[in-house]
Amino acid sequence: MATKSPNVNLVNLSKADYRGAPTTLCQGCGHNSITSQLITACYELSLTPEDIVKFSGIGCSSKAPTYFLDRAFGFNGLHGRMPSLATGTMFADTTLTGIGMSGDGDSASIGMGQFKHVMRRNLPLVYIIANNGVYGLTKGQFSATAEEGLALKGQGQNQYMPIDIVWEAVISNATFVARSFAGDPKQVRELLKAALNHRGIAVLDIISPCVTFNNQDDSHHSYAWGREHEVALHDLSYVPVAEEIMVDYEDGEAKEVTMHDGSRIMLRKVDNDYDPTDRSSILCMLEDANRRQELLTGLIYIDTNQESLFDLYNLPDEPLNRLTPDRIRPSRESLDEINALMF
């Protein structure tokens, strides 16, 4: 009897089956760290690569889908227009798991419109924004998430107020909103696992340092800043349906969120008693964190009850893209009726 190799997961795949082409991003780029956590998360969740479809816009961050899940379909679309692309494709087969990869330039500047509208439609999609406060691919211009006063080489000082992706997502009615830090791989991984099981839009604003253009110690998107200022809302772990909770939590020590498929997110209290299902407290919390110069991370908001985009359509169980021609062309008789209707 063949024994299960310790190096494969429940669907008999090794971690290598989740990898992509070798990265061409700078060594140390935060985007690489996100990619590697995504590979681990998919491996540990025993997802089948062919069940996943990847989308991205344009930017260093948007190049990342080339570097993970080689066996999945992927589409590197247009700058700022990943959400529309994903929306159309996901209608073709709603059983697919969608992963969208974007940057702060891609989503918070040119793509702000599509970013917001995909939130309100609640498209089932893991929407990762690798946020470095800068345009990496065009060599170091300020992005809309750069903090006021940030000085960049050759760019002077940023004069404008930043856009907060988390807040924008929340007020646009996103149903899963998290912030994390590429320098906190475990949290990134657990959040990705939870997001991959969310039935709706799951936004992850991941501070992902650009080591080439914006990694000065005092920049709010640098490794050093993140390490010093990160305040995790909770110690977070994702528990799949089939698994038991291994750690014993004392009463009141952990908060549990049950996902749509019955899996759970365990949020162990770190400091305060944060309830990620309460929308109304988010603005105060973000304001306070800003004032204290804290990088607040964790699951900021979740709503597992809101209907997803596809719940609003009366779609067949079979994927639309597998319907045979006879099922998409109405009958000859029906056209006679239509002609009779045309006066």
């Binding site: 989308f55 589409f75 679309g77 227009r81 692309l85 494709t89 073709a92 419109g113």
Partner: peptide, 13 residues
């Protein structure tokens, strides 16, 4: 921009 993006995403799908 989104209308055609969706249509092209669907066509690709």
């Amino acid at each position: 921009l989104a209308a055609v993006g969706m249509a092209i995403g669907a066509g690709w799908g």
